[in-house]
Amino acid sequence: MGTESRERRIDHDEFDPIGTLALIGLYFVILVVMWVLMWQVEFLDGGPTVVG
């Protein structure tokens, strides 16, 4: 399938996966923000905890 609709051929050296970097950078930011929220809001602010 896919390959039929190829418009041009791009080899390794001429290919910079900038879209991938953008997506994965976004994922990184989401992970960090959600991580902090989960720990702070859900866990540490979340009522009694085991302390010993």
Binding site: S5, R6, E7, R8, R9, I10, F15, P17, G19, T20
Partner: peptide
């Protein structure tokens, strides 16, 4: 992405 770029 490599596929997508080749597809334009």
């Amino acid at each position: 992405e490599h596929g997508a770029r080749q597809r334009g």
